[in-house]
Computed example of a mutant assay.
Amino acid sequence: MASLGWLTPRKRSATARSVLAGEAAAEAARKTSQDISDQAFGGAEFAGPDGDTRTVPAKAVPDEPEFPVTGDHLAAAFFDLDNTVMQGAAIFHFGRGLYKRNFFHKRELARFAWQQAYFRLAGSENPEHMEEARNSALSIVKGHRVCELTRIGEEIYDEYMAERIWPGTRALAQAHLDAGQKVWLVTAAPVETATIIARRLGLTGALGTVAESIGGVYTGKLVGEPLHGPAKAEAVRALATAEGLDLTRCAAYSDSANDIPMLSLVGYPYAVNPDKGLRQHAREHGWRLRDYRTGRKAAKIGIPAAAGLGALAGGAAAAVALQRRRR
């Protein structure tokens, strides 16, 4: 880890947490990617808007024929998950599933729903709200076994997530795979949830938020902090070092201005279904733009049709089902 002595104590602490979270995510990703490779079979599948499942065509490539470069093993692609690969937030959908399974009650749900509403209206995270949500969510899973949450995550993927994959972004990922490159999800969602999604889509693996577990049981503590903003960039940097990648030859895809640190690391940054801040930044810096939304949906992305208590439950899963895979 580089010296952080020039930073103020507060910034130094935050940077150290980001680095720790990134390094933990990279370590977990490399371990779980082998599991995904061992379980892979046939063509990757995704569910369309009408819920049917179809195989991604091999010819689904970006409209830049020279990119990605076939056979360039020093290159890889990094995809944000929420609203980039999947409509809505993974932790939102996962929270719906946990609420359905009585992991928490209406009192907690109301608090998380208010915090999520604040985020949507303000357009940015309130640090105090994020801290409270993280601690509350971790307390919900404290004492639960990792294997239990992983099994539930598989069920929730089928119930809520499979039909929300963006075909356009999925095709971009497939283009990198067809070129012989590795493709990683990079998300603040729990590493177990992210890994399930990556495996179902036939991707290489996932960088996600990692939390501590002892003897296969969650302790209620995170490793570092949620994989968000600068922590994502640290995770990508750590994984690139471990994998021997050249980041100037890599691509990254995201919808959020929060991911500018990650996008700025690579030679091929893409703004996919971008929010206002990222769209402006991308235009100013000549980054590539992709938007798979239509009409007003572009402004309302991520808000499920169901607006009841179950639909709001995702706010309660901000750090749920996390684990530390260090053995």
Rank of each mutant, 00 (worst) to 15 (best):
H228L: 10
I301F: 11
V146S: 00
K142M: 12
A298E: 11
S18A: 10
S37G: 11
A257D: 08
E225H: 05
W6Q: 14
V266G: 01
V19P: 02
G168T: 14
H73E: 13
I197V: 10
L81N: 05
Y292Q: 14
V266D: 01
Q116H: 08
V320K: 01
V223G: 02
D38W: 13
P304Q: 12
S18K: 08
A252Q: 02
P261T: 06
H228W: 15
E128K: 11
T219E: 01
A171E: 06
V191C: 10
L222Y: 00
E45C: 15
T8N: 11
I260G: 02
A26T: 02
I165L: 03
T209E: 00
L203T: 02
F78N: 01
A28V: 03
L312T: 08
E128T: 13
H285D: 08
H228E: 10
K100H: 13
Y99Q: 02
F79Y: 05
H176G: 03
K106R: 09
M1S: 14
P9Y: 04
P269W: 03
G97L: 02
F79M: 07
V183N: 00
S3D: 12
Q280K: 15
I197S: 03
A122Y: 15
V272A: 05
Y118L: 12
A175V: 12
G43K: 08
G220N: 02
G295W: 05
A235N: 00
D38A: 11
I301W: 10
V56I: 09
R164F: 05
V56R: 04
A77V: 06
K221C: 08
S18C: 09
V210Y: 06
E212I: 07
Q34Y: 13
I152P: 04
D38M: 13
A40V: 15
E225Q: 14
E125R: 15
P190T: 08
L149G: 02
T193N: 10
K182A: 13
P269C: 04
N258G: 11
R134N: 08
S37A: 11
A313P: 04
G216V: 05
P261E: 09
I196R: 04
V266F: 01
T187D: 03
A235C: 06
G277Q: 09
A305G: 13
E212D: 07
A231C: 03
M262I: 10
E108T: 14
P304F: 00
L121M: 15
E212T: 08
I301A: 09
D259W: 03
E132Y: 09
M161F: 04
K11L: 10
I214V: 13
L245K: 06
A305H: 14
A319P: 05
A122N: 10
K142R: 12
Q34E: 13
S264A: 15
R200F: 05
L289V: 10
